[in-house]
Amino acid sequence: MGIIDRYIIRKYLGTFGFILLLLSVVVLIIDVQAKKPRIQDNGFELSHFLINYYPFWIIYLVMTFMSILVFISVIFFTSRMANNTEIVAIISSGASFHRFAKPYLITSLFIATASLLINHFVLPWANVKKNELEVYTYSAANREKIIGSAPVSTQINKDEFIFIHSYNKKEKRGSGFAYKKFDKNKKLTYQILASEMNWDPQKKVFILTSFHEKTINKDDTERLNNGNEMTRSFGFPPEELFPDVLLSQSKTTPELTNFINREREKGNSNLNTHLNELHQRTSMPVAVIVLTFLALSLSSQKKRGGLGVNLAIGISLAFVFVFSFEALKIVSENKTLSPLLAMWLPNMVFTPLAAYLYFKRANQ
């Protein structure tokens, strides 16, 4: 590795680290000020959130905007090099533009690899910590949607179903419980009705109170049973029987893959939210490499207007890129596009653009 390689890598990582730190501090201050009243209204000290919530929230924030940070960093330091005629001097010394781009490739591969590992294994752990307290930063109406009581239902497999009239996900307790099992002809063969149900985390079973049990035999005769309390396991904990939109964020990729496969076996076709999360964990790190070369191509030549013009173009394109991910998530969740296509479409659009601009610049 030559002197120029080390120089550019230091520039890349130094600028990236500075922008990362600056963004984290600024956004943290703004977010704390905005959420402080809600945190205190819920009976928490702000110091508790600063220790137990915000460090993990920062990890989530950084990984969400990693591609923007990389893009702006490359635009910034490469534009300064171009304005200072450093790039002209390097190319004039006999190095090709491809050789000049080598340290950009090395650094982007390093950041992309680190992002890939964090997305698949570290970020889910951080999200577990973050999600435990995040609900207390919401408005009362949004908080009630998540930790309040509401009707839920789930399909355990193609023949077994659970319905609960009012279930509280935080307390893992509900009322108006019904479990129904059908045969291959969709005929009811077994049923449990209970006035109350709750999850026992020690025994990992559901406790059903004031239950009525009915078994329907092949000759259509019925066997009835009732009692004050019974315990039942339905094969999964309540978090997986009644998953929320945050569940996929809290699972490592092997755990998430197993969960999606189990849900498919159960007959659950509403998996796009979880599949979006799975595919985005890989597509976003790849975007780091794509956006690095797009930024290099846009900013490696001195332009009228200098750094300001390049930054304006870079920030606009970066936000379009990230916004497209969020928009395509909604499209995918509505089942208009497959999650795989939706989460890779921005890369599929920006990669040819980056390649065209790169080779155009290299041949100048």
Rank of each mutant, 00 (worst) to 15 (best):
L21A: 15
L22I: 15
L22D: 11
L22W: 11
L23E: 02
S24F: 02
S24K: 02
V26N: 04
V26D: 05
V27D: 01
V27W: 01
V27R: 00
L28I: 10
L28P: 00
I29A: 15
I29D: 08
I29M: 15
I29R: 08
I29V: 15
I30T: 13
I30W: 06
I30E: 04
D31L: 03
D31A: 09
D31M: 05
V32D: 04
V32Y: 02
Q33T: 12
Q33V: 11
Q33P: 01
A34L: 11
A34M: 09
K35T: 06
K35C: 03
K36C: 08
P37D: 07
P37N: 08
P37Y: 08
R38I: 08
R38E: 02
R38V: 07
R38W: 04
I39C: 05
I39P: 00
Q40R: 08
Q40C: 10
Q40V: 14
Q40H: 11
D41Q: 13
N42K: 06
N42Y: 06
G43H: 12
F44P: 00
F44D: 04
F44M: 12
E45L: 12
E45S: 14
E45F: 09
L46W: 02
L46N: 05
L46H: 04
S47N: 13
S47D: 13
H48E: 13
F49S: 00
I51K: 14
I51G: 05
I51P: 01
N52L: 05
N52Q: 06
